[in-house]
Design a protein around this nucleic acid. Structure first.
Lengths: 270, 270
DNA sequence: CAGCCATATCTTGCATACAAGATATGGAAA
DNA sequence: TTTCCATATCTTGTATGCAAGATATGGCTG
């Protein structure tokens, strides 16, 4: 049924196919200049709160509650929730309710594998194509990380970390790769906030970045790829432990636990 | 400003963090059971029409027009358009209008590169992990493709083609990879409808699939990867020619042509 | 006391009305 | 005729009200 019913269609016939202004380029998710609407503000706030676990996995959201919290109507709230649902951060059950998604444990490994594959391509191409100034800029990011690490500034460290990976994708000429990585790693990002502040982690990560960059600078793509890969390997070791400490935040797999009984019987689960 | 103004918040205090039913797993885009709302129907129809170029790049859409065409209100139409905007298929200019995106030519190469990287991982892992039955299922898909090719059934051929790639990701244990690939290749998909029906293409593609599968069957991951890579290489050769024949459907790069003049002066572009 | 059922309440989905900005149009002035 | 500007019209963004279904609650029946 491609062409829909022209029910009450004949309204504005001119239907001018006016040649629209040229499009903005986009590959994955966000635009360079996101529309500055209330809906976007609500979306960004909720997104951050969910990623930072300020809203716990499994918590129930209500469009009405959120609307009054943010001082807007349900419409922009709903728009934000729909985007979050597309990202897998919330789950909307039609006439029932909306909840913050639990972290799908079984998909974390896949997300990490995908990230490795994408960043491997980025590092390979960046090793070939990065300009002198781009290399310099990357070194400055590493330095900024080192400073943040010494100052124990976790937030600044993480910002520089992300900027480093983004800059590599940029230098590779594939900025969309970082957009994709960002999209894929949302669930993994939530876990970051469950890790205990481990002592030398930040300095270790900084050294790993420096190793990647050193190889890139020598145009040694294979070595850079290997360094990046072992860098990204650092993610998945602590997963089982984290889950053990926060079992309620995770789900195993696309889990329809038990379907509702045949005749509305309530099995009184949980 | 993470925590918003608690303006008129105190309404329903209980705020029970009722333990929601376990979540459905999800990685990239679509869910297994998309909500069957009008908005989803509108979205799917528009999505197909845009991918199939039944709606041309650059055409202007209007929420009101679409609403009357589909016999619904603006709300579900708007919801559909927002999703399409996230995918990069339409562009919404706040108080001005919505248009079907032109194909961002400069990003096509990146999309193909990303697809190669992702499918390479899938093929490698599928070569290792695919079960006998999965291999058999893949052969049946190849066979179905062969039949469609001989019957000159382009639609059926394409369906089997997609199913083949999806099945490889499935066999690899990384179904999310195919979801991601599907998301990344939307713009490339639109181009497919601009290619001239070239004679032996379908049979050639079928043979390439068979080559991939033969190597997978022998657990020869490297050979399977190479076959898949050369298979996917077949995409980008005809791009320049296609663009030459349909220049209006493309844009070069994030093109903000000219910003509006400093004092509201209209520069009367075009 | 246990189990069941009617009902109240809350949820999201959709329709509609209004607001504010952007664009196109037409006429007035040079 | 050309230029410019006021205005009408169309656009999307938001608020609000209603509808329909799902859930929880409380009382009733056994």
């Amino acid at each position: 049924m491609p062409q829909p019913s022209r029910k009450a269609a004949a309204k504005r016939q001119p239907n001018r196919p006016r040649i629209a202004p040229p499009a903005k380029a986009r590959l994955g998710r966000p635009s360079q200049a996101p529309r500055a609407t209330s809906a976007v503000l609500v979306y960004e706030t909720l997104h951050e709160d969910i990623i930072a676990l300020r809203i716990q996995p499994g918590a129930s959201l209500s469009e009405n509650d959120l609307a009054s919290r943010y001082g807007v109507s349900r419409t922009p709230v709903r728009e934000a929730l729909l985007r979050l649902a597309d990202e897998g951060l919330v789950e909307i059950v039609p006439k029932s309710g909306t909840t913050v998604s639990r972290i799908p444990y079984a998909q974390l490994n896949e997300a990490i594998v995908i990230r490795k594959a994408l960043e491997e391509v980025a590092v390979r191409e960046a090793s070939r194509r990065a300009t002198k100034s781009q290399i310099t800029g990357l070194w400055s990011l590493v330095e900024r990380q080192r400073e943040a690490a010494k100052a124990d500034d976790r937030k600044g460290f993480h910002a520089a970390d992300e900027a480093f990976h983004a800059a590599i994708a940029e230098a590779a000429g594939y900025p969309g790769i970082w957009q994709l990585v960002n999209q894929v790693k949302v669930q993994v990002d939530r876990i970051r906030h469950l890790t205990l502040p481990e002592g030398g982690r930040m300095l270790r990560v900084t050294k790993e970045h420096a190793a990647v960059l050193t190889a890139m600078e020598k145009r040694d793509a294979e070595r850079a790829i290997a360094a990046m890969r072992s860098h990204l390997d650092g993610l998945d070791h602590s997963l089982p432990d984290i889950r053990r400490r926060n079992p309620d935040f995770f789900v195993d797999e696309a889990g329809v636990f038990l379907l509702p009984g045949p005749a509305g019987r309530k099995t009184s689960s949980q």
